[in-house]
Design a protein around this nucleic acid. Sequence first.
RNA 1: GCACCCGUGGCUUAACUGGAUAAAGCGCGGCCCUCCGAAGGCCGAGAUUACAAGUUCGACUCUUGUCGGGUGCACCA
Length: 570
Amino acid sequence: MNLYKFVSNSINEKLGFDANLETPKNREFGDFATNAAMVMAKSAGKNPRELAGDLLPKISELDFVENASIAGPGFINIKIKDNFIWESADKKIEIKNPNPLTIDMDYGAYNVAKSLHIGHLRTSIVGDTFNRIAKFLGHNTISYNHIGDWGRSMGLVIAWIKKLHPDWPFFQDKFNSKLDYSKYYIPVQELDTYYPSAAELAKTDEEFMEQARVITAELQKGHAGYNALYNVFIPVSLKAMEDVIKKINIMPFDNTLGERNAAKYIEPVEKILREKHLLEKSDGAEIIVVKKDSDTAPMPPVMFYNSRGAVPYDATDIMALYYRKITDNPDKIIYLTDSRQKLHFEQLFRVAELTNLFPTENLEHIGYGTINGADGKPFKTRDGNAAGLNDIIEMVNNAARVRVLESGKKINNEITESIALAALKFNDLMHDLRSDYIFDPESVTSFEGRTGPYILYTAVRLNSVLKKSNVKTNNSKLVELSKDERNLLIGLLDFERTVQVAFDNRATDILANYVYDLCQLVNTFYHNCPILRDDVDEQIRAQRMKIVQIAFNTLSTVIDLMGLKIPNEM
RNA sequence: GCACCCGUGGCUUAACUGGAUAAAGCGCGGCCCUCCGAAGGCCGAGAUUACAAGUUCGACUCUUGUCGGGUGCACCA
């Protein structure tokens, strides 16, 4: 159960007003504390300690309170009865959500014909965890991988293929779209090199760039040859995406619908914009002005058609909003992208409001920081290239294999990789989403201390005790709680509140830090409180087994929310 | 230029709504495997929270300024 919530509600009811309930950093002070007396002292015209003295008897009367005392400048410290803690911890976790929302979760945003790189790590891992948390809290989520499959990069890739194979039928005047073109299949390893090569060339070769722009516009207008070619290489990219999703153990997306799908709704969206007189011609393009008089920051217009008649991502994002409106009609849309796109989403949300598609309060953009190398610049591999996601995964896998080899343990490859993945994912989840963080290969692959493997190891230990013992925990009774057992139970009872706080604050680090602290409590308990040893009293053993059971259940739940798997051994 | 974000031990990070003695990990100096798994536990050294004012009973947290770093500002996504 949610102990915090229960205690808070009980105290508020007893006192007749909402007292602020805190969990003291220093456990010595008590399980909970309230600063109500200090907050109210001024308006009451009393000194805080005196006021605390008035409140104290009421709090002490509550049946779950062991004792309450006044401390420092006027804090009321509250200690909960052991028996109450014991019974509370044993209650099943049941999340009842009185107000479940339909939430579109937009993360991933993979690109076609561009292999995934380190930048996709956070959106995938964090997005997946938010999705799992939201579901856990009873919301109805629909995840979208809004893939980049319709913009300039497509034009560049096609232009590059045209340069390599000018003789291919896709580029001929008399193109027959009814034939089978599957023999022009391009392996993913090769396809992935096209975009970087083309982008590089376009930087210096203006003619090539212009060709790509024209091709982009023609593709979007339905050019038969380009579309046939596009349909040949798209599945190759989609398959590569699926492989990565499996490899990093994130849930499959409910929808892999990107710009191309959105672009189908250009007519109804354009109609809305015209009816509301929102489109303006400017330098050959058609734009939507979203600037307000109150703006102090730069607020450029939104591009609907560029001067070549193509629809850039500003436009496809509006159409995607329309698509979601007529399909899911969600209560909320949460976008998770790099924080550099902040302005883009501010613009998009203004258009949503102007068009009455969605009110701004239903739209939310979470921007995450960059993953940097030791030099503070975006992380690169040793050869100086932007690190590919597969390279990073392989690096961590190798480190895990070395670690296993050194330990002399017999651990299979599947488990080794799941340990490596835990290291990678936990490292990502534990950092404040909004800040940049430094990706240090050495510490990520060290597997000691504050790491994913530490979390898994703790769970494996608990599970090992459970597997070895045949003690039935159904009838475990409380004999006596030692300090370590008590601290652990209190920690476990904070789980429900933590998940809620993590979701409300859109902060996976709150959950990651919680589970790490919890594991520390488990390991201290494990070290100080023998369970299966012969000299342990039978009733104490049953009590501790119960605690192990509860701790393992909670730990499993959190590990699952983080998209990790507990190995059988490690 | 305008706007937004960030600055906490040697390094990487915490501190939930403004609360009590700023909490961990790595690294450093020690200790603990005859004892349920040492990817573990325990002890120690290490901090003027960039700087300067202000608000408050109380500031890492809020306000203003300074310095330092990052990011964005229509035809890439």
